[in-house]
C-alpha cells in the first residue's frame, strides 16, 4: 500500500480539525477538534518514520501523546470551570480579553 495515502488521510484529518476549531462554538467540540489535529499530526509522524525507516517520528508521536494527555487534563478543567461560572460552554461568550 502506498504510504502517501496515510499522508493524505492525515492532511484531511488535520483540515477537518482545523475547520472545527475555527467554526464550532461549543468548547468541547473545539477541544475534540484540537485532539483530531494532534492525532493527524501523529499519523503523519508515524508515516514519515515508516517511509524513512527511522524511529524518530515514532518517538515524537509518543511525546505528542503525552502532551495531548496533559493538555486534556488542563483544558477540560478550564472548560469545566468556565461552564460552572457561566452556565455555557460557548467559546464566543468567553471573550473577556477583549479590550
Amino acid at each position: 500500500m502506498n504510504p502517501m495515502n496515510y499522508i493524505y488521510l492525515s492532511a484531511a484529518l488535520f483540515s477537518i480539525g482545523a475547520f472545527g476549531v475555527l467554526f464550532r462554538r461549543n468548547a468541547i467540540v473545539v477541544f475534540m477538534c484540537v485532539e483530531l489535529m494532534l492525532n493527524a499530526a501523529n499519523l503523519a509522524f508515524v508515516t514519515f518514520a515508516r517511509i524513512n525507516g527511522t524511529l524518530d517520528g515514532q518517538v515524537v508521536a509518543f511525546f505528542v501523546m503525552v502532551v495531548a494527555a496533559a493538555e486534556v487534563v488542563i483544558g477540560l478543567a478550564i472548560i469545566m470551570s468556565i461552564f460552572a461560572t457561566r452556565r455555557s460552554a460557548s467559546i464566543d461568550e468567553a471573550n473577556l480579553l477583549r479590550s
Binding site: L22, D92, N95, L96, S99
Partner: peptide
C-alpha cells in the same frame, strides 16, 4: 492595534493557522 484583540478564541486560532 487594540482592535485586533477581539477576545474571540477562534480569531486567534485563525491567525495562528
Amino acid at each position: 492595534a487594540r482592535r485586533i484583540q477581539t477576545g474571540y478564541t477562534r480569531s486567534y486560532s485563525l491567525v495562528m493557522l
